[in-house]
Design a protein around this nucleic acid. Structure first.
Lengths: 189, 189
DNA sequence: AGATGACCGAATCGGTTTTCTGGTCATTTT
DNA sequence: AAAATGACCAGAAAACCGATTCGGTCATCT
């Protein structure tokens, strides 16, 4: 297998498991079975390597979300399906959860910036989908950016914050049904 | 003016400005023009003083919200008015924002506990109002606790988080109109 | 020509010393 | 005598500093 790929996989594993800061280049090199210097022939520095990985994960999530959307189906059905799909990925979100946690602990620019980048990417993806349905006349004319922002923040609140003050985590179905019942419901004409 | 009141005001000022940890009892005493020991004749310790203040702010906010609710008016009108009123208090929220920020920096039990307490108080207040309207048959039968939670988290997201990644803060009207348009809209029958 | 790991300096860790601060209480004030 | 006070104490936090780690480079090796 080509070395670039080996490095990417090793780094993904390590970043997801230990976070940005606690992952060392030496460790990545060891897992990837390459010399440390080799990493630098493919990636400018640790930060760039990290960004590349985050970009890949986001891209994968977008693809998964897009895959689940059916042009024939209604907005409500598609929104429900997409949200369910994202919730299936709760584990993949481990990487993002790690980053968010890290952002508050170590205020390193690399992490703060990547966090903002992830947020921006997700929001603009959702916004674009919402706009499509607005233009198709299937949902009401709302501020799509605010809707996207609320969806993301609401999602994170229920998936992550909720558990801090509540015994039992919410199930995927509870969360999705609730969104269906409130935000999605408010959008349809 | 009575000493207890002086102390409360001095402490409120100081906690709001500097947070729990960075506020010293000596500082409070100086602002209140009393000896440090005097504080302890009124409040068991720093933590109790802090809780008393938080309780007062929450109580005041509840009163303000309640005052603005008109029994004659519709849910939609009242929700709008109450949210607007809360947004008028953005500055008073400084204290809460400080606490939330502090919670992540210093994991001191006093702060974590008070944060959870505030959240719980606000959510149950909103939940109660929502339930009232559900029972009155004015809004749909939704999970009122989740609605309350979403309203709180959404509110905080737009008032606080939004500014971290956006140049211009949202205006009170933008936020309220948006909530009106989405969450509140979804609730009416 | 591509890969490597010894090497460098900057950042971080950890342990030690110093300073600060919550809470007490003997003394002073009213 | 009752209330207020601030010097005092113990423990917690900050400041300091030498030891260690780690990102990134580059002379050497394959």
């Amino acid at each position: 297998m080509d070395r670039r790929q080996e490095i990417l996989e090793a780094a993904t594993k390590s970043f997801s498991l230990f976070g940005f800061k606690a992952t060392t280049m030496e460790q990545i090199a060891k897992i990837a079975n390459v010399g440390k210097g080799t990493i630098y022939t493919f990636f400018e520095n640790k930060e760039v390597l990290f960004q590349e990985i985050v970009l890949r994960v986001i891209t994968e999530m977008k693809q998964e979300a897009t895959k689940v959307i059916n042009e024939e189906a209604s907005f409500q059905e598609n929104a429900y399906a997409a949200l369910m799909k994202m919730l299936e990925f709760r584990d993949t979100h481990q990487l993002f959860a790690k980053i968010i946690a890290e952002e508050q602990e170590w205020r390193t620019p690399a992490v703060i910036q990547v966090r903002a980048q992830i947020e921006q990417a997700i929001v603009s993806f959702i916004k674009q989908k919402v706009d499509k349905y607005i233009n198709a006349g299937e949902i009401r004319q709302v501020n799509s950016e605010l809707v996207a922002y609320l969806l993301l923040k609401g999602y994170l609140a229920f998936v992550n914050d909720w558990n801090l003050t509540h015994e039992k985590p919410l199930t995927e179905k509870e969360i999705t049904d609730f969104f269906q019942d409130t935000i999605f419901h408010s959008l349809i004409i």
